[in-house]
């Protein structure tokens, strides 16, 4: 139980997927313009990441290792993630057309989101059990959503700020992301050893 809690906290704050490993920058910079779409994207990514890690773990330990097929690791993980994203897109299109329009192109881009493949590969490399893998995926998604929401809040405030003309748009967003990453580095002392 303590182990799960440690994984939960460390994945959200210390080893945050976006700000420490720098995976998933594409939706991070693309969808963080408004808080509503950032929230929707964060929820979608959390859902996909949790399911992706769980299903990938099951397939990895029951099929791939059992039959000595570890070389199929990447292909199978991508297959699982792509199918999950397709399912999520179908759900969102049916039950929330407004969110579907707001996310636009960035919804299918969750498929190639290196954060999700990264989560699956990290879970394999760290030899997690099933409960740990699910927690890892879930907290990875939550950490992603947290950073996305913070970025969306800052960007909405930046709209009213007095930014020099050359810095407006992508430039100030990137600099803000860099500063956010520095801020999150301060969490690294949270868990000793």
């Amino acid at each position: 139980m303590k182990n799960l809690f440690l994984i939960f906290i460390s994945t959200i704050l210390i080893n945050n997927f976006v700000l420490t490993y720098f995976l998933g920058i594409c939706p991070f910079l693309g969808v963080s313009g408004r808080i509503e779409s950032a929230f929707g994207m964060g929820m979608a990514v959390t859902f996909v990441m949790t399911l992706a890690t769980s299903i990938s773990w099951l397939i990895y330990h029951n099929i791939l290792t059992a039959f000595n097929l570890i070389f199929l690791e990447y292909v199978v993980f991508i297959l699982v993630i792509a199918s999950l994203v397709q399912i999520v897109e179908m759900f969102i299109r049916k039950f929330s057309p407004a969110l579907y329009q707001a996310l636009g192109l960035y919804l299918p881009l969750i498929t190639t989101n290196c954060a999700i493949l990264g989560a699956a590969l990290f879970m394999v490399a760290k030899n997690y059990g099933f409960a740990e893998a699910v927690t890892f995926g879930f907290s990875g998604g939550l950490g992603f959503s947290l950073v996305l929401l913070i970025m969306a809040g800052i960007r909405q405030e930046l709209n009213y700020a007095d930014i020099p003309q050359v810095f407006k748009g992508a430039s100030i967003t990137l600099i803000t992301a860099g500063l956010l990453s520095l801020i999150f580095m301060g969490f690294s002392g949270l868990i000793s050893a």
Partner: peptide, 9 residues
């Protein structure tokens, strides 16, 4: 990596 963002900005 943080510096990369800032330089890119």
């Amino acid at each position: 990596p943080a510096g990369a963002f800032i330089v890119l900005g």
